[in-house]
Structures are given as structure tokens and as C-alpha cells.
Design a protein around this nucleic acid. Sequence first.
DNA 1: GTCTATAATCAGATAGAC
DNA 2: GTCTATCTGATTATAGAC
Lengths: 198, 198
Amino acid sequence: MKTLETLNVSPPEENSRRRELIEAAARLFRDQGYERTTVRDLGNAVGLQSGSLFYHFRTKEEILVAVMALGISRTTEQLAEAIAAARSAREKLAALFHVHLNSLLGDNQAALEVMLYEWRSVSESSRPGLIVLRDRYEALWQSVLDEAASQGLVKTDTRLLRRTLLGSLHWSVQWYREDGELTVDQLAERMMALVLTD
Amino acid sequence: MKTLETLNVSPPEENSRRRELIEAAARLFRDQGYERTTVRDLGNAVGLQSGSLFYHFRTKEEILVAVMALGISRTTEQLAEAIAAARSAREKLAALFHVHLNSLLGDNQAALEVMLYEWRSVSESSRPGLIVLRDRYEALWQSVLDEAASQGLVKTDTRLLRRTLLGSLHWSVQWYREDGELTVDQLAERMMALVLTD
DNA sequence: GTCTATAATCAGATAGAC
DNA sequence: GTCTATCTGATTATAGAC
């Protein structure tokens, strides 16, 4: 049985300094990209000299991996809670859209966006741990979609449906504007309406 | 009336050396990312010393912009042709999926993928020209979706539908495998089936 | 047009003092 | 834990010969 540690993914009990750094890095990586963000930028953001970062992380890439792991883990937790609280297949289906979009488009959740768009900067050796986390998240999706399909709420090609829906949702960061005509939850409802069979 | 030149987008008549460089850059940028690809890598790929590149392009970023412009322009042309050849709204709808996926997943079309995933490395001053090209492509999509909706082929929320579909298709590069169970055209058919109202 | 050589800058990471 | 100082190497871009 592989543990998260052997997969180079940070343990859940981050001390506060590490956590603060990860949150700041998430915003910088989202806004400027990982490669364009320097360790000096990171230090500035938390009031440290660049050299001091390397007391907390061995390499810059380790920070990236920690950001991604946080982004996907936190979203998975939120989805699991929302599913547990839902009282019907239809409510579970709605949870997929609402949790994902709020996580991606919400104020302080840059980490998930980094997970989606900076994959290429993750070294081969760090990927397996992140893939495990991603697969857990997608497994939740798959089970909800399968239940929804069995009740005729959505089409039955649920594996492809999962991939296309996740693509649709991920892409929303490219065009959604907070000051636009739709709130995040309204957007979630309308995106769900597009896949309901009726 | 703005011309393409004033928007810093390359003219269509590229000389062969420029074109060769752009094609090589497209593959490198897709595989390694723009920031991780050095001008030495680019020179190597076409048998030039890194310094010689700057006879053809003023900056590295100019190469990125040329790659993106080529990717979206070529895809737009192909879509326009396919739409013109289609004999029904249904065939036009199918063209959206087939052209986009073949452009994105096909052998030598790395340029479109770069357009989608390296946007953050484009300077503010270069964006307007690329946005014009992107808008032309999306306008084609919108007109086809509107016609399809008017015939009841798809749901009527076509503006959101356009955005979700494009997101779905773009994301396919993250999971589609050429050696998998589906050809690109089979995938196109199944993705279209997911949005047909029936 | 392409080469060689190099300027000018900036990157990630380390060592040792405090 | 954090700072200062710095090492080492890489990067884009330029200048001038051919």
C-alpha cells in the first residue's frame, strides 16, 4: 500500500508557514505562470528573502507540487461532503457543477487552476502522486454520473461525459468574469441544464 | 479598418524558412512549453545557431505569436471549407467536431494546442491580434450552433453551449491517446451525440 | 542569411552568520 | 527560522565577420 508520502505529496498537517507559502504561490502561479514566477517573487509575497524559502521546500518545483496537491485535495473533500449531504441523484449531479465551479472560480482557490494548467512543469517523478489525487476526484464524478444515468437524468456514455464535462468546467476560467451577468451558482445551473436529458 | 499587420500578426505569405521555424516551434512549445523551450532548442530543431533566429524574428515571443496565429488561422480555414461543403445543419454541426478534433489531435497540428495553452506568455501588446483571429473562429461556431438550435438539433442556450463545447474539445488533448480505442473521427461522433437533443 | 563570440541579465540554490 | 552574500549556470539578444 503506497502512502501519500512515498508519492511525494505533502502530508495534510502543514505548518502555518508552509501553508501560507503555498497559498501565496498558488496565486502567483495562476496569475503569472509557474515558470515566470521567480523564487524572489515568492519570497516577496510572504515577506521572506528568496534563500529562506529553501528551508521550507527543497526546490521550487516542490512548491508547485504542494500547490497542486492542495488544490485537488481540497476540492475533493468539498465534493465528498456535498455528495454526502445530497438527498437524490439529481442533487448529487448538481453538486458536481457547483463545487467544481466554486472551487475554480471562487476567490481564494487559485490552487485548482494551477493543477489544471501547469501540469507540464511537474517532473516525471512527482506526477504519480498527483495522478492518484486526480483519480480520486474523478472517481467521485464517475460514480455520480453513473447513478444519474441509471435514473435517466443524463446520457449513458458516462465515461466520455465525465471527460467532456470536466473539460467544459475547466475552460470556464478562460472566459468567466465575476462582474458579468451570471453568478457562479447560476452558471452551474445552466451548465447542468445543458446535459440533462429532457 | 485594422489590418492584420497592425495587430502584429504574421502575414499569410511566410517565406519557407520562417514557416519551417514556426512549425518546429509549434512542436517544441507544445511538448515542453514556451518558457522551457530555449532559443537554442529552436535553433537545433531547424539546424541553425541560436543567434541566427533573430534574423527571422525580432524576439522569441514573436515566434510564439506566429505559432498561435498559424494554428488558429489554419483551423478557421479548414472549418470554413467544411461548412461550405456541408449540405445540412446537421452536417455543419458535425464539421465543428471533426475539424476541431482533427486539428487539435492530428499529427502535425501542434500550433492550435499552443494557442490554447500558452496564452499567458503572450504580451499584452500582442493579444489583440490573436483575439481577432480567435473571435473569427468562434463566430463560425456560433452561426452553426444557432442554425442547429433553430432546427431543434441542440439546446437553445447556444452561447453557453459554444463555450462548453469548445472547452470539452480543448480538454481532449489531455486524455486522448492515438493508440486508444477511438479514432479521432469516432470521438467526434460520440462527442456530438452527447449534445444532440433526442 | 548564417556564423562566432559575447554582452547583460537573471535564474535556482547553497553556506554560514545570527 | 531567517538573513546576507554569493556561486554557478543558463537565458535572450546583439555585433560584426564571412
